[in-house]
Amino acid sequence: MTLGPEEVRRIAWLARVAIREEDVPEYARHLSRILEFVEQMAAADTEGVEPMAHPLDLPQRLRPDEVTETDQRERFQAIAPQVERGLYLVPKVIE
């Protein structure tokens, strides 16, 4: 399977990655190679094999329901570009 320039642009947009137009053919080649690798794996017979959700064959550890975090807003907001009245400010988004 080979990806075209349109698909590359769409994937970049979905991931919010800015790419230069002249790099699109190169990305298309790289991404297509990944898909070829996937196709190679798809050829393996996986009949009766349960899909893995994680490379580690371990169950998820659970934590007790306790509040262990303290308020560190000032420290977090010290590195935020813009804050006001305790809120993080971002460019206007409206649906």
């Binding site: 934590r63 306790e66 975090e69």
Partner: peptide
């Protein structure tokens, strides 16, 4: 109705000052 969040130990109490219950 948990006391802490699903993946962190921050409080879920309603009505706190903005961002005082949002941990790393």
């Amino acid at each position: 109705a948990t006391r802490s969040k699903i993946f962190s130990g921050a409080s879920t109490a309603y009505g706190a000052e903005p961002n005082t219950q949002a941990c790393a």
